Amino acid sequence: MSDRELQRLDFLRKAGLADAVRTPLAGDASTRRYERLTTSSGATLMLMDQPPAAESRSCDPAWTPAQRHASGWNAVARLSAGRIEAFAAVADHLRSLGLSAPEIIAVDAVAGLAVLEDFGDDLFARAIAAGAPEEPLYLAAVEALAALHEAPAPDVLTGPAGDWPLLLYDETALQGGADLFVEWMPRLNPSLAFDQAAIDEWRAAWAPIAARGAAGATVMAHRDYHAENLIRLPHRPGAAGVGLIDFQDAVRAHPSWDLHSLLQDARREVPPALEARALDHYFALRPATDREAFLRDYAGLAALNEARILGVFARLIVRDGKPRYRAFMPRMWAHLNANLKTPGLEPVAGWFDRHVPESDRR
């Protein structure tokens, strides 16, 4: 029996769950693993298992961009490095707003273990695949975002495992994400080659978009808000009927970030008419929003995020041996190509025209 398994058993014993039946769940692209715990009464809970040493350090709020780059990807991107205290603090904040995040039943942040409320398996993506109408689900997801965006975004979140800073999704993080494209796409597609001049041109083209994203960072962003991280909770009213998971990397970001993650999803098609309807619903819920400026930033940051995701998928395929992510790339290319037609994105569109043939953008 491994040392980690002994640690899990000791944690469950202390939580009064030594006799729970443990059922592992399928993994994703992260270093976390989950188990469903079934108690003797038939109730279910979730065990979150995030080994603390599995990832590079998270970002110290005082670090300079140079220090962040020297400390690894989690610091550059301001990811939580899977820290349990981040998940617990974000969950408490979301629940304080009347939104549905899992209750923390037991937690040991040092060990990287937590027992959570179980929201079940009724993910939006699965429900839609099984025939549920998608528009009500997407509009509910927008209502949850609007509620989150109307609330203040505190500098520090407090939770049962300790405080956690809500860091700015700043220009270093945004540009670092975009740079994954020029770093990893040539390794996946050797016909692409970007010399230093091309990389400098790339960064200059994205710089004003990253600057607007950082300047407009006024709300808490879930940061991975899409139909596979949202769960139907039909017995809860309004926005609380949207179960939120996988939010441990929350940051202070532009309010468009979670919207384009939801509506220009890498994993499933969202019809353009539904995207437009959802955006209209958001503006109706937040009438003070400058729609024209918002949509300009929405397209620019969506394009940046799509370049980032293409780089992430290339890395997952090449470095991590996960070829299944190739199937998602055509959808991301389609979204990126469409967004590059937006006025104001001419420098980025021009870069792609010069350096990435159309035959490689699909």
Rank of each mutant, 00 (worst) to 15 (best):
V107W: 01
H254I: 05
I84G: 13
R203T: 07
P154M: 13
R126A: 15
G216F: 07
I84S: 12
K322V: 11
P160F: 01
T342E: 15
V182Y: 07
M220K: 03
G82K: 03
R32T: 07
A302W: 00
I245D: 10
A193T: 06
L17Q: 05
M46F: 02
S261F: 04
W351V: 07
E103S: 10
A250K: 04
W257K: 07
A89H: 07
T64R: 02
P234S: 15
D265E: 11
V242T: 14
A109E: 12
A127Y: 02
Q264K: 14
L233S: 10
D195C: 03
R252V: 10
V356D: 15
L9R: 10
P154W: 13
H260E: 09
A130K: 10
D155F: 00
E358M: 10
D249P: 04
L166P: 09
A278M: 06
R326N: 11
E275Q: 10
E228K: 09
L47M: 04
R236Y: 13
P52N: 08
R33V: 02
S41C: 02
L259F: 03
N337T: 08
R277G: 13
A253H: 06
L99R: 02
A284C: 04
A239S: 15
L345C: 11
A106R: 07
H281T: 03
T342M: 11
G98F: 05
G321M: 02
V21M: 08
R315T: 08
E346C: 09
R296A: 15
D155G: 14
L316T: 00
A66T: 10
A147K: 08
H335W: 07
D28E: 09
L259V: 04
L295G: 11
V115S: 08
G98A: 10
F87S: 15
N339K: 04
E5C: 00
R331F: 04
L148F: 06
D249M: 06
P347E: 06
R267P: 13
L45E: 08
L301C: 07
A75K: 00
G72L: 03
R362T: 13
M1K: 07
D360C: 08
L12Q: 05
P165G: 11
A207M: 03
G300C: 09
R319N: 09
A125F: 09
L167D: 14
H254C: 13
A140I: 00
A204I: 03
A250P: 03
P152T: 06
V356E: 14
G42K: 01
M185H: 09
A29F: 03
F124I: 04
T342Q: 15
L37E: 05
E150R: 12
G213M: 05
A77G: 09
L113A: 06
G159W: 08
A338H: 03
P287V: 05
L230Q: 12
D200V: 06
M46N: 04
A205E: 07
G82T: 05
V90R: 02
V312H: 01
